[in-house]
């Protein structure tokens, strides 16, 4: 498990006059599940892309652990991003740098935890949307990442399927607690999953407020989540503009 320091002084899109991200500072403690909550289009995906190294045009510094070597980053995108010409197992195995040392047993365990053992040799087109999301989550966990980035992974799923995948993710994360940065615009989803909520402003994006979720994980049912959400909006007037 790894501590992560994110410091972005400024990030502008090419040709844009205004900054997308400005003076963004955030620290994730080792093994912490942090949810970034902000309105659609505020720059959350841009932030994740910058952290993952997909976009390096920003000023600032991102420190993942204190390793001298490249940190391992798992990324769960909005779309599952599976290669259609490879089976579930082949998709997962491909992310390992050394193809001769693939931890097959660990992959089997992950497939089992996500209830996909019977689909290990299926192609993505044979899976439902929820199953595809589960595969992309397994792929991200399989490499034992120093940091796991999740960009609204349940955004296009219907509510029951999103809940089912969310519950499986919670079980998986409790089994293998990596440091997670999870992006969402759904406050209920964030409360159900996170140790810490980080609220974001728009144009430019910066941290508005950091709040720890005080409800124990085993008590995070729909009723308690809703209660916590209402308290938040009542207690912090600045959040009312967001929700």
């Amino acid at each position: 498990m790894t501590t992560v320091h994110i410091q972005i002084h400024e990030k502008k899109h090419f040709g844009a006059e205004n900054s997308t991200i400005q003076n963004f500072n955030l620290t994730l403690n080792a093994g912490e599940f942090v949810c970034l909550v902000g309105q659609s289009g505020c720059g959350k995906t841009t932030l994740l892309n910058s952290i993952a190294g997909l976009d390096s045009h920003f000023s600032g510094n991102i420190q993942i652990g204190n390793k001298t070597q490249n940190p391992k980053i798992g990324f769960v995108f909005q779309r599952p991003c599976l290669l259609p010409w490879r089976t579930v197992r082949e998709n997962i195995e491909l992310v390992f740098e050394n193809q001769n040392a693939i931890p097959k047993k660990q992959i089997d365990e992950l497939l089992n935890l996500m209830q996909l053992t019977n689909y290990a040799n299926a192609y993505p087109k044979q899976l439902s949307e929820g199953m595809k999301r589960r595969v992309s989550i397994i792929r991200a966990f399989a490499i034992n990442p120093d940091l796991l980035l999740m960009d609204e992974p349940f955004v296009s799923l219907d509510a029951p399927m999103a809940r089912e995948v969310r519950e499986l993710l919670q079980q998986l994360w409790q089994n293998r607690p990596h440091t997670v940065l999870f992006v969402t615009h759904d406050l209920r989803e964030a409360i159900a999953l996170a140790d810490k909520l980080v609220f974001l402003t728009s144009c430019p994006m910066r941290v508005l407020k950091e709040i720890d979720v005080s409800i124990p994980r085993e008590k995070r049912d729909a009723q308690n989540v809703e209660k916590f959400r209402e308290q938040l909006i009542q207690n912090y007037s600045e959040l009312r503009l967001l929700f």
């Binding site: 190294g53 490249n70 980053i73 995108f77 779309r79 991003c81 491909l94 992310v95 740098e97 980035l149």
Partner: peptide, 16 residues
């Protein structure tokens, strides 16, 4: 492009 981003984020080599 999203598949290419996936490859980049998981540090695939150019050949891979």
């Amino acid at each position: 492009k999203e598949l290419l981003n996936m490859a980049k984020s998981y540090r695939f080599s150019r050949v891979k």
